[in-house]
């Protein structure tokens, strides 16, 4: 029994060492998002609490914790409470398979990329449950929109992942990074990277695809009836998902923990730093897009997903497979 206890203790410690930095960086990333947004629009952004306003998110979190949680009388209470919990949990458990360096990964499983894809496809339930259980029209409309949107864009993300997997020959995330030692996949698969980036925006309900929230028409979509800590959990889950999509993008296309070139000043920097820098780069792109692009109309969004991205990425799968087959570059033989 003691060895069970010690195993349990060390695993819990490892999980905490991963999750606490993730949660802190989610809070920081909200600040960064608002700052970038403000700078593009020639405003100051949050700059009062702490140095450069860095503690703004903590102040916000404190405010959310002390606010009253209101559960509407006509709502379905169990599902109403479950929804933010599910969103938050799903956003956090996916970090288990992200490799920060060659041996710094919580769970190095064979089907890591499938696990990430499965968990992100479950993410839609938090939103549907919240929208339905609120028993109110705006949240329900927001939830229906969001479910359709996430299911559509998952298809193209899945096919883009197949493109990368064809070149790697393994579903393990560490293998995917190691396969990019010579050339990052952003160079041979650049069109797929662009489509992945746009699909990731849609998958995480970021502007210009934030129709589920669409504050101008749906008040705030599925979050309308939520207050206090439950609202904050939706919000944290959303940003944790955005960070995760940035991490997935940097692992699939930007070489994960690898340094850009394997020479002296670059390869002494520890590998987790490189991954974090790449995640930040992608996140700043996310924030810039939010500031400069107007919102899509719903039919345009669906058209983009099904009629543009799906055929393009499918064609690219055929091209990649044909190229690898013809030049005998297929991995695993």
């Amino acid at each position: 029994m003691p060895e069970y206890a010690s195993i349990l203790f060390s695993e819990v410690l490892k999980i905490l060492m991963l999750l606490v930095p993730v949660l802190v960086s989610v809070a920081m990333i909200v600040w960064l998002d608002r700052r970038v947004w403000a700078f593009v629009q020639k405003r100051r952004g949050p700059n009062v609490v702490g140095p450069f306003g860095l503690l703004q998110s903590l102040a916000d979190a404190l405010k959310y914790i002390f606010k009253e949680i209101i559960i509407p009388a006509s709502s379905n209470k169990v599902i109403f409470i479950l929804a933010p919990i599910i969103t938050m949990t799903l956003a956090l458990i996916s970090w288990a398979v992200i490799p920060f360096s060659e041996d710094f990964v919580l769970a190095d499983i064979n089907v890591g990329i499938l696990y990430l894809f499965a968990v992100s496809s479950l993410g839609v339930y938090g939103i549907i449950m919240g929208g339905w259980a609120s028993n109110s029209k705006y949240p329900f409309l927001g939830a229906i929109r969001s479910a359709a949107q996430m299911v559509s864009y998952e298809v193209s993300i899945g096919i883009i992942i197949i493109n990368v997997l064809l070149c790697v020959g393994s579903l393990n995330l560490s293998d995917i990074v190691k396969a990019q030692e010579n050339v990052w996949y952003i160079i041979p698969l650049f069109p797929m990277f662009v489509i992945f980036f746009i699909s990731a925006l849609a998958e995480t309900n970021r502007p210009p695809f934030d129709l589920p929230e669409a504050e101008a028409e749906l008040v705030a979509g599925y979050q309308t009836e939520y207050s206090g800590m439950m609202y904050a959990m939706f919000w944290l889950g959303e940003y944790a998902n955005i960070l995760l999509m940035c991490a997935l993008g940097s692992i699939l296309f930007l070489g994960g923990w690898l340094s850009p070139i394997n020479i002296f000043p670059f390869n002494v920097i520890p590998s987790p730093i490189w991954l974090i820098l790449k995640i930040l780069l992608l996140f700043i792109l996310f924030a810039l897009v939010k500031a400069i692009v107007p919102r899509y109309r719903y039919d345009q969004l669906m058209r983009l997903g099904w009629k543009v991205f799906l055929p393009l990425s499918l064609t690219w799968v055929v091209l990649t497979a044909g190229y690898l087959m013809y030049f005998d570059l297929l991995p695993g033989n």
Partner: peptide, 25 residues
């Protein structure tokens, strides 16, 4: 059978059940 398990999650839970839920709602 981790592959089957993940595919089950992606196909049934991530896609089929969402459509079920849509219709039922």
């Amino acid at each position: 059978a981790e592959f089957l398990g993940m595919i089950m999650l992606i196909v049934y839970v991530g896609a089929v059940a969402v459509l079920f839920l849509f219709v039922v709602m």
